[in-house]
Simulated assay, not measured.
Amino acid sequence: MARTVRFKSTADYATSEIQRMILAGELPAGERLDQVRLSEQLDVSRHPVRQAIERLAERGFVLLSPHRSAVVTGHSVSDLVELYSLRESLEEMALRASWPRLSTEGIEELEAIHQRLVAQDSETDIEGYMQENRAFHLAFYRDCGNQHLLRTITTLFDLSERYQRTALNSARRQTRSRDEHGAMMDALRAGDLELLSQRLKAHNRGTQEQVCAMLTSPETADAEA
Rank of each mutant, 00 (worst) to 15 (best):
R37M: 13
Y129N: 00
Q120P: 03
H75Y: 14
S9Q: 08
S197A: 13
T15I: 03
A213M: 12
E58L: 10
L138Q: 04
L27V: 15
Q19S: 02
L195V: 13
A119E: 11
S65K: 06
M1R: 10
Q51K: 09
E219I: 11
S76A: 13
Q208H: 11
A14F: 00
A221E: 05
E54A: 10
Q51G: 04
G60Y: 07
Y13R: 14
L196P: 01
E127D: 14
A57D: 04
V118Q: 02
R165M: 06
K8P: 06
F7P: 08
E31D: 14
R101G: 13
M185E: 08
T15Y: 01
Y129C: 06
V72F: 15
E92S: 12
A29Q: 13
S89W: 08
M185D: 07
E127A: 14
E123R: 15
L150I: 09
L196I: 12
L83E: 09
R134C: 04
M184C: 11
V72G: 09
G191C: 11
F136M: 01
S98A: 10
A187K: 05
R59T: 02
R3A: 06
Y141E: 07
D158Q: 07
R176Y: 11
Q120L: 03
E82S: 15
S16T: 04
Y163L: 08
S69K: 14
S160Y: 00
T124F: 00
A112W: 07
T155F: 05
R151I: 01
H75Q: 06
L83Y: 03
A139T: 06
Y84V: 15
I53C: 03
L64E: 08
F140Y: 08
R176H: 07
A2F: 07
L110T: 14
Y141S: 06
N133E: 04
D179G: 04
W99P: 00
A2T: 12
M21G: 03
V211W: 03
E109A: 08
A119Q: 07
S177T: 06
